[in-house]
Design a binder for these strands. Structure first.
Lengths: 226, 226
DNA sequence: TTTTTGTATTCTGCATACAAAATGACAAAC
DNA sequence: GTTTGTCATTTTGTATGCAGAATACAAAAA
């Protein structure tokens, strides 16, 4: 039993990945605002690394669309205008519809129940009127549906679009009516999933995203006026 | 009219972008084979730049899924197994169906005619039995349809998946029957687009991708046996 | 012969150094 | 008062240097 010990298989996480994660958080949480410039020197000291891995992270975020690269002028947090937002959500609608379809076929009963559990937790936050908590579980449910489609490429594509859209989630400062409607839609989505009703879940998810988009777009102009 | 001149907007292209493009080509063209290791020092001299911008490019390719990052062991060209391939094509099918729908609505007549021109060029190569030329215009047509959907996010998502799938295009060493059928399908797709028949183009593109996937999957096992 | 172990070499990951471009300040000219 | 030109400073883009991990290889042991 000399060398049989588990030699830490935890290869230290590369700094550029760490940096990418932290930058993503900063952007999605709105700590770095759209249009804001990413000063490399400043960020490198704030994140406690050198410019090299930081730059690698920034390049990754650029391909993900979270930041924009300006030649010789570094990177800025990309703007999230109504056009980009609705474009993204339209694509996500198509992806979720496909995901629902596949999940109906591929998800195990245990996975469906996992989603069901999240659904009830979400209902609890809805009942309390806690929007932030609601959003969190709402997000989790949608992600799980896509994940349990069993299609990794689909999951990755969805994840990437979602990161961009999440930045604007505060815009969906939805009315009570829309909120209640969204919850009802989620009820139906879960029912369709449990019933393995492919046609139905596809239609439901597609409509759900369409409604969400409409809700966000309705809220958008008032924001820009402010 | 003193300063109205076009002040060379051609800011020199950053080396990391140049490197990313060239690496993409090398991978898509199969000059770098799946599983092959990317030696940074070697590649940097071959491409005529230093390791820093090269590494940035590699990180970008990794997020695009063209290469895989192994901790402390650099990057390898990612493998293109049947699972990944079919997963990607399923997603592309959904995206193309959406794109066709949107293109029907948004594309100008001039753009439709541009696609028509590509279609005829493709027919010429088909008539000659020139598979490589056929593929080239086939690709161009599909890309144009997605582009003329007018949805930039959709285009980006599609482009990324496509880069991965193109690497396996030689696998679709299709039979004459399948080839002829594919051409007929393209005829119908173009007709539906010109007729602005949303329902029809959606169904056609979805089926087209399904058939293409089946064709590729059928060709795959024989390849692996060889 | 096969396996193991110690060592040298190669390669990656990261930090730093340097050059070119952009930004900003400030003064001169209109 | 505005504009324009010049210079100092800051910031990005790229190259290079260095430490540690991984790999290859050779010698020793089974």
């Amino acid at each position: 039993m000399t060398n049989t010990q588990q030699v830490t298989p935890i290869a230290r996480r590369p700094l550029h990945e760490e940096a990418a994660d932290r930058l993503r958080d900063l952007i999605v949480q709105g700590r770095l605002t759209p249009g804001e410039r990413l000063n490399e020197r400043l960020l490198s000291v704030q994140l406690g690394l050198s410019r090299t891995p930081l730059r690698e992270a920034i390049k990754v975020l650029a391909t993900e669309g979270l930041v924009e690269l300006l030649p010789n002028r570094g990177a800025i947090v990309s703007h999230m205008d109504a056009v980009r937002l609705s474009e993204s959500m339209v694509v996500m609608g198509a992806l979720e519809a496909l995901a629902g379809e596949l999940a109906c076929i591929n998800a195990t009963d245990a996975q469906v129940n996992e989603i069901r559990a999240l659904h009830y937790e979400m209902l609890a936050y809805h009942a309390r009127g806690d929007l932030a908590g609601y959003f969190k579980f709402n997000q989790a449910i949608h992600l799980k549906i896509v994940k349990y489609s069993g299609n990794t490429m689909l999951f990755n594509a969805y994840r990437q679009l979602n990161a961009n859209v999440r930045r604007a989630r505060y815009l969906a400062n939805l009315s009570r009516e829309r909120w209640d409607a969204a919850v009802r839609e989620h009820d139906e989505i879960l029912a369709a999933l449990a019933a393995r009703d492919v046609k139905r879940i596809k239609a439901l998810l597609s409509d759900h995203l369409t409604h969400k988009l409409a809700s966000v777009l309705a809220a958008l102009p008032s924001r820009q006026a402010a």
